[in-house]
């Protein structure tokens, strides 16, 4: 059970003067139950890449396997795949359209062919999971706050109960409070439902805290796909991509330079705390 990309390339405007590679010859395998952070500078091909994983975009070259089946093969049921590989777009609140919150969340499950009752059950569950209270269910999605809208939209995808959840910059445009809520919710889903999560972001700090693997894209090419520790060890190279390591990694490096016996490759505050306590204890 996994998602595997093989030599995936996507070319915009092939055969014209505007021909550009959005994604160039990318291969990787994401194991079930992992939490992958996908980072890259604006225009590095992150959004293009993830749209291939549930068959919304067709690659120019290469293909994607879901559970060892070629999803771009003739006759493959893409609609069913989209129930398994849920994709939350950037600013998902702009896709809300129903008269009330609950009906909007039921849209996905109903499209999967579930009965009205079952769809309602799943929608209620999903809404609770994202922290939306019952009295909001009957309100129009257009009169909610920004953070609430975002959570309702995410619930719209979760209600399909996908095995893989892909989120494209889910925290864009939210305040720190909203960011924490969304990220906390995603990590809870990952833990409690054993969902595979692919989190697209350009905030290193967010990604470092939750992801067990990090994928770095640069100009459409896969630069790194490794554990956060290994990836942030290359923070000099990351900077040439217009990215950076988490703040805390820089702090650790400064402390090490100042003569402290601290691990340079720390990437989260928790790790830093443990290291500093260890040093102070010795």
């Amino acid at each position: 059970m996994s998602i595997r990309a093989e030599h995936l390339s996507y070319i915009y405007n092939e055969g014209t003067v505007m021909e550009t590679y959005a994604v160039r010859d990318i291969s990787f395998e994401i194991a079930d139950g992992s939490f992958v952070g996908l980072i890259g500078h604006t225009g590095s091909g992150k959004s293009t890449l993830i749209q291939h994983l549930n068959g919304l975009m067709k690659p120019s070259r290469g293909t994607v396997y879901y559970n060892d089946e070629d999803i771009f093969a003739e006759g493959y049921d893409l609609k069913r795949l989209r129930g398994h590989v849920g994709l939350v777009f950037q600013y998902p609140e702009y896709q809300l359209f129903e008269e009330d919150v609950l009906t909007d969340v039921m849209f996905g499950p109903k499209n999967m062919g579930l009965s009205e009752e079952e769809a309602r059950k799943r929608a209620v569950e999903a809404l609770h999971q994202v922290g939306i209270e019952d009295e909001v269910f009957v309100r129009s999605p257009f009169e909610l706050s920004g953070g609430q809208k975002r959570r309702v939209a995410v619930a719209g995808v979760i209600a399909m109960e996908p095995a893989v959840l892909i989120l494209d910059e889910p925290t864009a445009g939210l305040d720190p409070e909203g960011r924490r809520e969304i990220l906390g919710m995603v990590s809870r889903l990952h833990r409690e439902r054993q969902m595979t999560v692919i989190l697209v972001s350009h905030s290193m700090d967010d990604v470092a805290e939750y992801a067990d693997r990090i994928m770095v894209l640069n100009h459409g090419e896969l630069a790194y796909f490794d554990t956060p520790r290994e990836v942030f060890r290359h923070h000099k190279e990351l900077e040439t991509f217009g990215l950076s390591a988490p703040e805390i990694t820089y702090l650790a490096a400064e402390l090490a330079d100042a003569g402290f016996d601290i691990d340079r490759d720390i990437s989260t505050v928790e790790e830093a705390k443990a290291e500093i306590l260890r040093i102070m204890g010795s």
Binding site: G86, L87, F107
Partner: peptide, 13 residues
Amino acid sequence: DKIMKAQTARGAD
């Protein structure tokens, strides 16, 4: 195009 894709991802046809 974007909204269409987003709704397709939610199973719209």
